[in-house]
Amino acid sequence: MSSSNWTFSHPSTFSLVGIPGLEDAHVWISIPFCSIYILSLVGNGLLLAVIKTEPTLHEPMYLFLAMLAFADLIVATTTVPKILCIFWFRDHIIHTDACLTQIFLIHAVSTMESGFMLAMAFDRYVAICNPLRHSAILTNWVIAKIGLGIVVRGAVLLGPHPFLLKRLPYCTTNVISHTYCEFMALVNLACVDPTPMSAYSLAVAFSCGGLDFVFIVLSYILILRAIFNLPSKEARHKSLNTCSSHVCVMLVFYIPAVFTYLTHRFGHVAPHVHILIANLYLLFPPMMNPIIYGVRTPGMRQRALHILGIRSA
């Protein structure tokens, strides 16, 4: 280890391995990674353009969806370009400040994504359980305050992460067996007991994503109870259809997130499997969210085709 990289056990750079055990296949693995990233950029950019230019979509659900799309773009752009540099150019080195910034953005913005999904669930709850007051409750001012509150919560609760990591002594190695900088990956490199930091991270994760998921489930229990009390089958089907896109997006986000979090802390899976799932958690939702809403929302699909200059059948 060169002395230029180390000063009193605090490295100036870290080295990202990529996917351990699959180094020879990095070029091939980069093909789906790059394709997913391009689809995420195009899909979320188009989704934002559609919501901005289509007045009928200036509703709470789609405004929260626009916030989610913007967060998806940040998460994808924070991670994929560096991953592709590792895969294509074997550029494994990342400056410590860039690594800590990546950690903050990944965790803080992922927390914001969870909050936006909770806001979307709240919108569906009000729209179905109290439809006559929907527009009065979720005004543009209220939507803006909810969005700002979600952003502030993510920034404040995850803000200490990089500062805590920077103070840790890394006295053994600066090599991270991952494709991107991750909080627990750096904690496990430090020559200190990781238990307190792991407990802190777990508490923050539960107070954000865990509680968000609990409240989303409670919202849908109340929503389903209201739907099944509707008098006609047609009304029940229409109400369920308005929730289906959000449910799909929620499952795409939370299932990989829970699996990644639990296996990283408690599981015993092969490193390359864990890292592939961790990347899936970051890359798959940004690609799928625009597809889910584009397919299931006729107005959005038609507007997207119009922007692209494609005539719908």
Rank of each mutant, 00 (worst) to 15 (best):
D212P: 11
P162T: 09
P81I: 04
T297K: 10
Q302C: 00
L157S: 09
A108T: 08
G149R: 11
L240S: 01
S2P: 07
E234H: 10
V269L: 07
C181G: 10
L222F: 05
E234I: 03
V42E: 11
I38D: 12
I146P: 11
I146L: 13
I128R: 08
V192L: 01
T173E: 08
W88H: 01
P60R: 10
A199K: 03
G267H: 07
G149N: 14
S135A: 15
L157R: 12
I29K: 02
V17C: 02
Q302L: 03
A155H: 13
F122V: 15
L132R: 10
K52S: 15
L165K: 14
D72A: 07
V273M: 08
M288W: 12
C191M: 03
A270F: 03
V175S: 00
F284W: 07
A205W: 02
V269P: 01
S312K: 01
T297E: 14
D72Y: 09
M112D: 11
L168V: 02
A270Q: 06
F215S: 14
A136Y: 13
C181A: 12
L202F: 06
N188A: 05
R236D: 14
F64S: 07
G309F: 00
A190T: 10
V142S: 10
P271K: 03
L164W: 10
L47W: 04
H306D: 03
I150Y: 14
H161A: 02
G45M: 00
S135P: 11
R90D: 08
E59K: 12
L305M: 05
S110Y: 14
W88M: 03
A199E: 11
I137A: 08
